[in-house]
Structure formats: C-alpha cells, structure tokens
Nucleic acid binder design. Structure first.
Lengths: 236, 236
DNA sequence: ATTGACAGGTATACAGCGTACACCTAGCCT
DNA sequence: AGGCTAGGTGTACGCTGTATACCTGTCAAT
C-alpha cells in the first residue's frame, strides 16, 4: 500500500489528467453517472483530491468542454465562407458524436471559457471574412445558435408511431391497436411517421437519418444567410 | 393539529393541485430549487404524500409541461400556413417566457405525453394543411425543432464584451483593460459586441433584443420552407 | 543541516436529494 | 360490523457536491 501510494504520487495527478479521465469516463458511462466520487475512484484517489485541481464540478464540466473544443478542426483558410462554416460545423458535429455527454453539458453551461470564446470568434471571423456585414453577422450567429456545436435541439421525435414506448417485445395485436389509436388521436403525426417508416429500408432503425436532418437545416440556414447577404440585408 | 389534519383532508390534494403548485413554485423559485421536499412543504404535506399523485419526479415534470401546453393558443383555422405557424410559435414563446423553468425541462424530457403529441400534431397539420408534402413537412418539423416551443438554444452570447463576468461594480480601468484584452484575443467577437453596444440605446440592457433574434431566425426558416415548397423540393 | 512553506492527498462530516417500505387512519361498501 | 382502499405519515437508504481540518513528502532558504 505504501508502494501504491508512492506510485500514485510519482504521477501526481494534474488538471489535464483529471479532465482527460472525466472525458473518457463520461464517454463510457454517460454524463449522468459522472460524479466526483466516481471520477475519483476511477483515478484511485479520494473524492476531495479532485478539488485540488478543479474548483468544483462546474469547472470540471467547463474543462471537459474545452477539451472537446480542442478536437474540432480549425477553420480552413482561403475557403468561401459558406463552405468554411459548413466544414467546421460538421467537424464539430463529429466531435460531438464522439462525446455524447457534450450536448447536455454545453446546453447548461453558464460561464464561457476562453477556449469557447475563441471557438466562437472563429465563426464570426469566417462570416466577416466572407464579406458579411457586422450587423448581419451578429444575427447570423444567433441564428446558428447551438448548431455551431453540431447539434440541434431534437424535440420532434417521429419514431412515435412505430414504437411508442420503446420496448420491442410487444404483441403484434397491441402494436396495431396502438397504431390505430395514434392514427385517430394524432392523424398528422401518423402520416409522417408512416411515410418515414416507409422510406426506411432497415426496419429496425429510427426511420430518420439524423445526419441528413442536421445538414438539411444547416444548409437551409446557410442559404438564407447568403441570400440576405446578397441583398444587403440590414436590421434597419 | 387534529383540526389542521382534518382541514387538509377536506381538500384531499389531487394530481392537478400538485401540478399547479409545482408550476407556481417553479415560477417563483426556479426549477433548480423545485424539489419534492420543497414542493411538499409548500403544500403542507410530507414529501412522500406527493407520490400518491405522481409516480416520480419525472412524471411531475411531464405534467408541468402538459399544463404549459394547455396555455398555448390552438392553431388559428383558415389562416395561411406560414402565419398560422408563426402565430402559434409566438404564442408558445409567450407561454415560455411566463414560465422560465419550461425551457430546461422541455430540453430534458425523454417521454412524450399525449398533450405534447397533440401539440406537435397541430404543427404537422398546419404544414400539411398548407399544401406542403408529407416529405417536406417531415424535414420541416425537424428544422423547427425546439423553436416549436418558442425558444432557441441561445449559445451565442454577445454580452461578453460589455460586461464579462456579470458584475457591474468594477473599476473603469479594469473594464477598459478587459475590453482591450478582448479586442486582441477575440477581435471578431469584439467587433460584434461593439456594434451591438453601439446600437443599444439603453446602456444597461444586454444590447441584444432576444425577441428580435428569435423572430429573425423563425422567419428565415419559414421563408426557407416556403421556397422549398414552391419549388416542389423533395429529399429524393 | 534545519526549518518552514506549500502542493497535494486524506478523513470526516453535513445538508440536500429522490424514493422504497411499512404503517396508520378515515370513509365507504357490502 | 368488517374489511377494502385512498391518501397521508415516518423512517430509512444510498446517493450527491463540497466545507473543513488534517497529514505528509518535497523543496527552498536560512
């Protein structure tokens, strides 16, 4: 035990190792299971030891976001603004899909770290560099919102029809009964769910290509931005 | 005490009263302070008593969202789809601003109650009723996302320049030092923050009209939807 | 060589959370 | 009269973040 203690002390657990461990732990067990105690245990250390390296859990989460930001590709220089933005957003999205915990964490952050400010500054720079006015860029950044991070607030779930409840072990007669119930309670949702299920080749899947939906909206917005830019839009 | 117990029993605390109390409590003290214990206390009852009326806290939150949904105006019939959608979204936004707790709660909901399904169904109905194809409507609903609820994921905060940190009691030399710091670290953000501060008549305000930003994006999207509809867009 | 500061790990403790489980009691139906 | 039940109570468990005090090894300055 003395040896272990010494071995632990030989690599004295700095801030980066704490953040790194937090990221991989959250990747593995999910953000809801990332507690200070659990993280400490993972590092072979007592919970309070973490507080020598991060002020509190909020700061830990801030740090985790910072490491995520560092994984996002920088803006490609000398590219048209639209594709530069597009590429970077999609890079952010890839990073975000690697770290599912990041979405809820980003959503709840209140403080803005320098790394995050730098990330945003990059976007603003792309728009301004593309010739968009300061005014338009301002509103465009608001419009981009969380899509800047590669995610959308997915609040519309069209999987309701095929599998309301989530369990797959359900007698077929119950399923059809529920489908009929839905068809009459939510006729419009039903039509869409039906169409999505129809298009879907793999019967198992959600019937909805998240990546397609994301790029659909992203391009819709980018095209809108471009149009406003071309007609010298201004907020009066 | 017997009298109190009897008085309490005379109005035996049903599900609706629990939900109503939860909503007003959350309105007053914020969602982060809404605990089962606190809510029970507010109702003059022991915490576990609540569990006779809601299965658990999740279901309580679901119920709170349902009451919020009931405050949103139904779709106005016989209106062009664009303005019908627009009106309803803005009605949702008003409800949401009355209940600040709703945004984080909606964001974290996993189950979808019938009331919420009905709400969504109404939107789908407006698009389909306006002649949009099932396919386009599907993607349009995804694009709408959380904006359906009247909020955007506000992840871009342009108040960074004027008041990084939030405290107003700060020596002016420190403030200018920070501004200079920002100007060189985040030159692009700085330009935008500066412009926003300039436009702002009230020096105190955030320098950013949230309502304007919201409607800006909403209309950008609606116009995009319309354009796609006019050119019979389809996802192949 | 001794001392003292300090960085970093530890131990204990507290207040708060959601909620499982057992219990009680008043009112109603047979 | 007797039991069922709806609804409120009391206690307890395991979990959370973190304040506070303590200890110990390392290193710099005397």
């Amino acid at each position: 035990m003395t040896q272990l203690a010494e071995a632990a002390r030989r690599v004295p657990l700095n801030r980066d190792r704490v953040l790194e461990a937090a990221v991989t732990l959250a990747d593995e067990v999910g953000i809801e299971s990332l507690s200070m105690r659990r993280l400490a245990q993972e590092l072979g250390v007592v919970p309070m030891a973490l507080y020598k390296h991060v002020a509190n859990k909020e700061e830990l989460l801030d740090g985790m976001v910072d490491t995520l930001v560092s994984e996002i590709d920088p803006p490609v220089p000398d590219a048209p603004w639209k594709s530069a933005v597009r590429l970077r957003v999609l890079s952010a999205r890839r990073a975000l899909l690697r770290h599912p915990w990041a979405r809820p964490v980003i959503e709840t952050r209140t403080t803005t770290t320098p790394a995050v400010l730098g990330y945003m500054d990059g976007f603003v720079g792309m728009f301004l560099g593309g010739g968009l006015s300061v005014d338009l860029t301002h509103h465009v950044m608001h419009a981009l919102g969380s899509r800047m991070w590669g995610f959308t607030q997915e609040v519309f779930d069209d999987s309701a029809g095929r599998d309301a409840g989530g369990q797959q072990s359900m007698p077929v007669e119950v399923r059809t009964a529920m489908a009929m119930q839905m068809a009459e309670s939510y006729p419009n949702l039903f039509r869409i769910a039906l169409a999505a299920a129809h298009d879907d080749e793999s019967v198992v899947g959600s019937g909805c290509d998240d990546q397609f939906e994301f790029e659909f909206v992203l391009d819709l917005l980018l095209d809108g931005f471009e149009r406003l830019h071309e007609q010298d839009w201004t907020s009066r």
